[in-house]
Amino acid sequence: MKATPRDRRPMWRNSTTRYGAIAQLFHWAIVLLVGVQVVLAEIAEDLPLGLQKLGVLARHKSFGITILSLALLRLAWRRLSPPPTLPPQMRPYERALANLTHWGFYVFLICLPLSGWLMSSAANFPVSYFGLLTLPDLISPDKELVEPIKNLHELLGKLLFATIAIHVAAALKHHFFDRDDVLRRMLPGKAE
């Protein structure tokens, strides 16, 4: 049996010029989960407190904790496999914006679930991860804190959304306007 030829095997780690399979999986899994979260949050917002809302929020919390875990794992993976270098033709302000949005993502993807978890604790509705295990409360129940933490959670959501908008616009700019490989680096394909 022949060994799989080198160029047939996926590149798991990042190279200096493109993202490896692991980084891509993290990226697109989080994209999908964030999409699910936005939908669930919208649905829950419109429901009166009742059985349905309980179910939607329970799922929203579980997916949120999944995103938190993935973001932390992704951060750890970044240590093991640094991202490709930014294309040389990028201007300083573009590099600054790129770094800002990427770090912004880590901050929001971690703080959003944490603030949600905090809110659940304050509201005495502890978080259960898909019914498998219950997370400890981050703080003791406190009615006064629920509203302020909820506002923070929603604000972080809006900031994440703004970051996503900049990120997507930039990716499209790179692809269609600059005609470089920035977008392609995060998509499955052959190494250069």
Binding site: G55, N124, F125, P126
Partner: peptide
């Protein structure tokens, strides 16, 4: 117990 998590009242 709601959604798998215990709470006290």
């Amino acid at each position: 117990n709601q959604a798998g998590a215990d709470f006290e009242g």
